[in-house]
Design a protein around this nucleic acid. Structure first.
Ligand SMILES: [Mn+2]
Ligand SMILES: [Mn+2]
Ligand SMILES: [Mn+2]
Ligand SMILES: [Mn+2]
Lengths: 148, 148
DNA sequence: TTTATCATGTAGCCATGGCAACAATTAATA
DNA sequence: TATTAATTGTTGCCATGGCTACATGATAAA
């Protein structure tokens, strides 16, 4: 037996496996997205993105930030000379821009639904990485229809 | 200089660090939540939760699932005897229930906004772990007002 | 121009979460 | 019952993403 049950709430095995696989993929890029987004913001806002500032804003020790930045460089998303600040490649800048758009969209969606700004910012920082293109379009429509 | 800029889009340093810290915390428990939720579903649906089935549904190799289940046991969320299926402790069952509620809520919210069911299920699998209590309440209100 | 401070780099440690390969046990079938 | 198949366990590998401690380079103060 053990196979019968009551046709429960479980999705099909391949479908569920696919979903969890997509979550793993998204998780793998989530941190990189946050880094390039932050670097872009620092460049725009302060003219440079220093390791110390990146580390402080991410809330991690500086060697942790250094390692992640090396990973960005290996993946062709960032560049830097020793003891100089960090810059984004074309690809990095594109990723940052997409991340920024999605970030602000999710914040706006949450605020439109009535979530307080501070909470919206906090929750968006996690949620933003798991939104598909389809959902992104739906969100855009919704915040357009409602708030301005 | 380098400090001036144009009072840009950046949040305060401590606020931003706090947010990223919360994201890291949520990420750390995300996988555990998915496992206990799946185990609960398998128990309800098939009467037992076997390692093979868990691994297949998670889309990972069985040693990967075995390691995660050991972690669940270490954290007092699951129990199992060698070569028998996996069960949840009180704490594990509670976590599963909360995960299940949030999962379905996020799916319903997305569907209510007009996201197709299949996409809603996929996106919810990632988003669900980053929703604060406040946002959860807002979502509940919203789907209550709208849907049904 | 020394000297002190600050920023960056580097090494090594740990836990997580993937994998493949092989061993041992349990269940199914011949 | 004996053999085969399936399940579970175990080991060892890798990359990621945290940390501390220490070395080195650059900047600011004395
Ligand atoms: Mn983020
Ligand atoms: Mn962001
Ligand atoms: Mn999930
Ligand atoms: Mn879930």
């Amino acid at each position: 037996m053990t196979k019968a049950g009551r046709a429960g709430t479980l999705p099909s095995e391949p479908a569920q496996a696919r979903r969890f696989g997509r979550v793993r993929d998204a998780q793998a890029t989530a941190l990189l997205e946050d880094y390039v987004e932050l670097i872009a913001d620092l460049l725009a806002d302060a003219g440079e993105a220093r390791l110390v500032d990146i580390a402080r804003r991410m809330g991690v020790a500086h060697p942790t930030a250094a390692k992640t930045i090396n990973r960005l460089k290996r993946q062709g998303l960032a560049m830097s000379e020793p003891y100089r600040g960090v810059f984004l490649t074309e690809a990095g800048a594109r990723m940052a821009e997409r991340a920024r758009v999605r970030h602000r969209l999710v914040v706006r969606l949450l605020e439109t639904l009535g979530v307080p700004s501070e909470v919206a910012e906090a929750d968006a920082e996690g949620m933003e990485h798991y939104i598909s293109d389809v959902t992104e379009r739906v969100f855009t429509q919704f915040v357009g229809r409602k708030g301005v």
